[in-house]
């Protein structure tokens, strides 16, 4: 492996707090590195010793199953000691307590902190108070960089490229950190991004992000290469942001009829967990054009790549 260029790749930063600020070269480097781990993860022997002796703490202030287990697996396969800390938001008062938690954990000398928090900016705040590397596993409606990276890897493996593709991100853009990270990444990599959803679920002045905005899903899906669906939280479905599940699915749910408006070889993605019959029809979610399972596989590989790359900047690396 020493001849491989990925071995010398490194990120010019201590933390991965967002896609914002990553160059196309850095993103490509991370994806190339992740490709190696895809291969590794499909072998019987999946372990590396890259992070041996290192301590990784998964600090989740917001409940998560797939992201947390994905990071846990990624750390363990690289040989780190992984500890999971799930702190329900209800038991934590934000602000001061977050910083107290950071200081406490810092005293235990971890090497990596993987942090998810319901408040935008909370991960960055915590990162300023610790000496180790911090990976943002999702902060409020701000960023979720590893999700965007795993989506990019999935797209690149299936389409051979990202540049020049048209990607439609559909649904609850307003509350979505996945949408924000993906818009940043896809733009950096030269894709054209559309956002589709009812106006109540689109952030103010979203067009200033450089995306094409569609309220009508049928128009928005025309000629797209990738349809990226977002989860709609249950409490937003019954009159506050959209009137009902029935109406939402009718106009903005992805079913086979709407999918036919996209390119014939269009592929469907969803960060999970899905609400079948709300934003996506089962026939589409489980259909031939769906990459949803593959996204989960890519998630572990991308997180291994991120941990590996960040560890190269750690002291004594």
């Amino acid at each position: 492996m020493t001849s491989n260029p990925t071995a010398s790749f490194s990120l010019s930063r201590r933390h991965l707090l967002g896609i914002e600020g990553l160059s196309a070269e850095e993103i490509t480097g991370l994806l190339d590195l992740a490709e190696e781990f895809v291969t590794l993860n499909r072998q019987v022997e999946k372990k590396r010793a890259t992070l041996r002796g290192r301590t990784q703490i998964n600090l989740f202030f917001e409940a998560s199953t797939r992201t947390q287990s994905s990071f846990e697996l990624a750390g363990k396969r690289l040989g780190a000691d992984v500890m999971n800390m799930s702190i329900g938001n209800s038991s934590v008062k934000k602000g001061e307590t977050l910083i107290d938690t950071a200081a406490t954990l810092n005293a235990m000398h971890p090497d990596m902190l993987i942090v998810r928090h319901s408040a935008s900016g909370a991960v960055e705040l915590l990162a300023r108070k610790v000496d180790c590397a911090v990976v943002n596993a999702g902060d409020g409606a701000h960023e979720h960089p590893t999700q965007a990276l795993l989506d990019a890897l999935t797209i690149r493996r299936n389409k051979g490229r990202i540049e020049g593709l048209t990607v439609a991100i559909c649904g609850d853009i307003l509350h979505s950190r996945v949408a924000r990270s993906n818009i940043l990444l896809l733009h950096t990599m030269g894709a054209r991004v559309r956002v589709i959803g009812p106006s109540t679920l689109l952030p103010k002045e979203i067009e200033r992000f450089g995306v094409d905005v569609y309220r009508d899903m049928r128009a928005g899906l025309e000629d797209v290469d990738i349809v990226m669906m977002l989860r709609l939280q249950r409490e937003r479905m019954s009159g506050s942001f959209v009137p009902s599940v029935k109406e939402y699915f009718h106009y903005w749910g992805l079913d086979e009829a709407k999918l036919r408006l996209a390119k014939p070889d269009a592929l469907v993605m969803h960060p999970g967990p899905m609400n079948r019959g709300v934003e996506i029809d089962s026939a589409v979610a489980d259909g031939a054009q769906s990459l949803i399972r593959e996204q989960v596989e890519m998630g572990v590989a991308v997180r291994m790549a991120v941990l590996d790359a960040l560890s190269r900047n750690l002291p004594n690396a």
Partner: peptide, 15 residues
Amino acid sequence: LTKGLEGREMTQIGL
């Protein structure tokens, strides 16, 4: 405009 004219949740305007 709102369900039951209660002023809380919007109706199914599209449908």
